[in-house]
């Protein structure tokens, strides 16, 4: 459902993605691992359409449609979701109001009527339990004063309410203690389905103990140097990224 072909992207004139290929089908969970600066977050931001990330070559197709031509909001309405590495605090916009605006924006895009207030409330309550979120967080401003764990939980909560067809999780595990990690992972696992695809971006193997991927890819210097099953993550955990950093050429040959 997500096809990335020969993707090159620059940020502030520096080439970060350097010919990345990736194909993710419905129901699949792919993990991308890599050292700092390998381009993991750039990939997430390019997929979501953030300003300042310039694609210089290649294409990204979402169910056959050219994703790169779409505005960020259109991508979201088409069913794409990015769980942010650093969720933004938005003072003065209540979490619940924000979420309802998002749900209605997606419904409007699909030509559906505005969400029924009671239905929405039921859905919100059900999903809140999924990520063990306190009701008071709904009334608070989006992410304002939230702890790191609360922010990440809020991301997964939004995902659970919006029910995208494809989700990118950008280092959702960073800054989480083991309990929070488990809650977040449970939330993600509950949303796994044969129709839904996931791209899980992480620096550490730990998250993949809880969200078990179907495929693991190693990203180094802006391209995927190796792909495998979940066993690859364990291997990386033991060996680190040093192998790829020191001799990227050899790593590339190994995947060939």
């Amino acid at each position: 459902m997500l096809e990335i072909r020969n993707l090159h992207a620059t940020v502030e004139g520096r080439e970060i993605l350097n010919g990345l290929d990736l194909s993710i089908g419905p129901g699949e969970v792919h993990a991308i691992m890599g050292p700092n600066g390998s381009g993991k977050s750039t990939l997430a931001n390019v997929i979501a359409g953030r300003e300042g990330y310039i694609v210089t070559e290649g294409e990204v197709l979402f169910d056959g449609k050219n994703l790169l031509e779409m505005e960020p909001e259109t991508r979201a309405c088409e069913g794409l979701f990015l769980a942010f590495q650093y969720p933004v605090e938005i003072p003065g916009v209540a979490n619940l109001y924000f979420l309802k605006s998002a749900v209605n924006a997606v419904r409007k895009y699909r030509g559906e009527s505005l969400v029924d207030a009671m239905d929405f409330w039921d859905l919100v309550h059900e999903r809140m339990e999924l990520v063990k979120m306190d009701e008071s967080m709904l009334k608070r401003s989006v992410n304002e004063g939230f702890s790191g764990g609360e922010k990440k939980r809020n991301e997964v909560f939004q995902m659970a309410v919006l029910q995208p067809r494809f989700a990118v999780l950008d280092e959702t595990d960073s800054g989480l203690d083991i309990d929070a990690l488990r809650v977040v992972a449970d939330g993600v696992n509950a949303l796994r389905s044969p129709e839904r695809g996931f791209l899980v971006i992480t620096h550490y193997q730990r998250l993949l103990d809880y969200i078990v991927p179907d495929y693991v890819h190693v990203l180094v210097n802006g391209r995927i140097v190796r792909s495998g099953d979940k066993g690859l993550a364990l291997e990386l955990e033991q060996q680190g990224y040093a192998l790829y950093n020191e001799e990227p050429g050899r790593a590339r040959r190994a995947t060939a």
Partner: peptide, 12 residues
């Protein structure tokens, strides 16, 4: 903040 809202589907 603007991008965050747009990334959730809210028109610019």
């Amino acid at each position: 903040a603007l991008f965050y809202l747009r990334a959730r589907g809210i028109p610019v």
